[in-house]
Design a protein around this nucleic acid. Structure first.
Lengths: 237, 237
DNA sequence: CATAAAAACGAACGTTCGTGCTATTATTTT
DNA sequence: AAAATAATAGCACGAACGTTCGTTTTTATG
């Protein structure tokens, strides 16, 4: 349910690398898994633009220059494809937003990193259509089913991540004890989503930077008096 | 482009009502327009759940127990149907959120009314699927075309409404002169969208009330010192 | 290198999609 | 009530949808 915290900050490539040539990259991964991955890569981006329901097996196959049936065989049904797409998007999200933040020390630095990374990942268009999960959230928020459940899980996971970062900041004395972490998390994420909305729909280029400012000044509202801050904050741990 | 401000607060029904019987209601409206309206009513709700792209003429026809072609004849194309659906949703939005607020006096009361009405209209499920425009915004934020443009127009109109209310509040001395109205408007709407997200997707029942609190306390941050407040605030004008 | 297993293909299935027609009803207007 | 107009139904179309199946090609294994 929770994002694994023990992921090493850097992939830590291979103890003993065999060939330096670009070919045969990590060749213990079977063929099927590789195509499956490339299918999902396209699917995620297509879904971020056209919606999860908007991706069709035919269009995916065309885009990847393979047959419908060949592509279809990797997933038993369209729903399974959608579920796999959500998982793939989650992976990308973690890679770009969560993982770098975990390299930061707990407390305010990590909390801010989460916010900043999120806005950055929208800014640098990691997904073709803004944020996969924002789109998926509002597409499936009234449609019961396994896909919706998967999206909800991913989003709860994300909100928990934010909440925990706030709790840590509280425990370390970075912010006042009076704040409700869960509520502040939703408040911060709201500002992020709103900024995405202004940026992506209305085309306001400054929206993301404005959100940075807004979040920062909101956080400044909540910093504890300097006396409260605890010592011993060395590693990222 | 802008919401007409001169709308009377109450519909002001008929100078001399002919028949009190439920039948023949305002019978100068031709048949076609009436069915068109009922089609759009269903379309709006269906779209708020399944998305604007998700509404199909066949499903609409089934739901209304009429033929596909008969329904189709009211709109030249699916795109036109979508555009009409956006317009219809805009009308409903204005009716539930904007109009009641315009009955409030300018300044803080009207501004707060806008916020409160918005959250209320989500709460009482005016649209089957949360908020039509939130869904439509994120569905079309990366899809160029007339439908997107129409959505953008409606949303700019709404954001302008909020902005103007803030400007008025500023002018009346209700809030500090230092605030950037446009930015505050986006900030407030962000909190609203975020609350919708928590309410509709995560099922957090308190999300909307929490948003009310959050917006209120944010506004309290910005109230001008009592000296600055202007007099002469009688009617809603 | 042969062989078993996995992956990709091509064709077809029954539906549904949006969109044209033409005919037939309902509703307005004269 | 008749004539004119508007609204709806019926039917058909080509395309795209998700899905199945049997065959062929590619990859991995002994």
């Amino acid at each position: 349910m929770n994002v694994p915290v023990s992921i090493p900050a850097k992939p830590r490539v291979s103890i003993r690398l065999k060939s330096l040539g670009k070919k045969a990259p990590a060749r213990r991964v079977p063929k099927g898994a590789r195509t499956r991955e490339s299918i999902l890569h396209v699917a995620v981006n297509l879904a971020s633009v056209e919606g999860l329901e908007g991706i069709s097996i035919g269009r995916l196959a065309d885009e990847l220059r393979m047959s419908k049936s060949g592509l279809f065989a990797h997933f038993g049904s369209k729903e399974d494809l959608q579920l796999a797409t959500v998982d793939a998007a989650r992976e990308i999200f973690i890679e770009h937003v969560v993982r770098p933040a975990l390299a930061q020390p707990k407390g305010m630095p990590r909390l801010w990193s989460l916010c900043d990374n999120w806005l950055g990942y929208v800014e640098q268009r990691v997904f073709a259509g803004g944020c996969f999960f924002a789109a998926a959230s509002f597409e499936f928020d009234s449609r019961p089913g396994p896909v919706r459940n998967r999206i909800v899980m991913a989003m709860k996971e994300w909100l928990d991540m934010l909440t925990r970062a706030i709790e840590d900041a509280k425990q370390l004395g970075d912010i006042k004890v009076s704040v409700d972490p869960r509520q502040l998390a939703l408040e911060i994420y709201s500002l992020a989503i709103g900024a995405l909305w202004g940026f992506q729909l209305l085309g306001e280029k400054k929206a993301l930077d404005n959100a940075r400012t807004a979040i920062l000044s909101r956080l400044r509202t909540l910093v504890a008096s300097p006396a409260k801050r605890r010592s011993s904050r060395k590693s990222a741990r």
